[in-house]
């Protein structure tokens, strides 16, 4: 056991490097995904059939073809057209577009769940459509969408674990190296705990964001509740919505 910890100590700098790559992919992917989700999500609930149709095609395309396929397409096929990008850029692009398409459905659904009276109120106050969206509708939708976005963020983190196949030395890659010097249970135990801790911190941060977003709408939730591990979204549509 002591040998294992010695090996871990020796491998620590490399594991940290892997951790940083995983975090860069997660944060970069999340930023691109959020931008994609808001743009496509807003387009997908427009009245204009062209805008809506465009958004729907992009969303269904990126949701329907697997993340791994998209990643490999960008990494293996694009260079054959003479378009080579660094692996980090490819990783962030694939993660951001794939999870952004999922996020777009969340954004669209949340905007649709804001009561119609709120839109009518923006008209009554003669706000422009953009102002109404930015100042009235989106803040309310934002509070609704955070639990689902939180789940998506954890998905994205877990999705990064595939990038060693596009030559990136991420956390999973470094853990596999540690396995050689120690043993399977020790190395993967360390790896799983590290991933769990990242996911846990991300979930807590999202819960805090949700508490803040709700508080701004005058629906205060105490912070202890924000420290709950489980997010409310389960995807079940029924009368359960009132319970959660």
């Amino acid at each position: 056991m002591a040998d294992n910890f010695d090996a871990l100590l020796n491998a620590l700098p490399l594991i940290l490097e892997g951790l940083i790559i995983t975090l860069q992919l997660t944060v970069g992917g999340a930023i691109l995904a959020m931008a994609t989700a808001v743009v496509l999500g807003v387009l997908a609930q427009q009245d204009n059939i062209l805008l809506r149709g465009f958004a729907r095609v992009i969303i269904e395309f990126f949701r329907g073809t697997s993340l791994v396929v998209q990643l490999f397409w960008l990494f293996f096929v694009l260079p054959q057209f003479g378009l080579s990008f660094p692996a980090m850029a490819v990783g962030i692009a694939a993660l951001g577009l794939n999870y952004g398409a999922y996020g777009a459905e969340i954004v669209r659904g949340s905007i649709n769940s804001v009561p119609a009276g709120q839109w009518e109120a923006t008209t009554a106050l003669s706000l422009s459509k953009l102002q109404g969206m930015r100042r009235v509708i989106f803040p309310q939708a934002w509070a609704l969408m955070i639990p689902s976005l939180s789940n998506l963020l954890v998905h994205l983190l877990k999705g990064t674990a595939i990038v060693s196949f596009i030559t990136m030395a991420d956390l999973t890659f470094r853990i596999d190296q540690l396995r050689v010097d120690t043993n399977t249970f020790f190395a993967y135990g360390v790896g799983l705990v590290l991933y769990f801790l990242i996911a846990y911190v991300l979930t807590l941060a999202m819960n805090a964001l949700e508490a803040r977003a709700k508080h701004k709408l005058g629906r205060g939730v105490s912070l202890p509740e924000a420290l709950n591990l489980r997010s409310a979204d389960t995807g079940v549509t029924s009368s359960t919505k009132e319970h959660v």
Partner: peptide, 19 residues
Amino acid sequence: VDFIRMTPIVVQLLFAYYA
């Protein structure tokens, strides 16, 4: 359950494979 859900399936696959 939370632990399994919040860790990557890729790492779980590798773990089970070597174990």
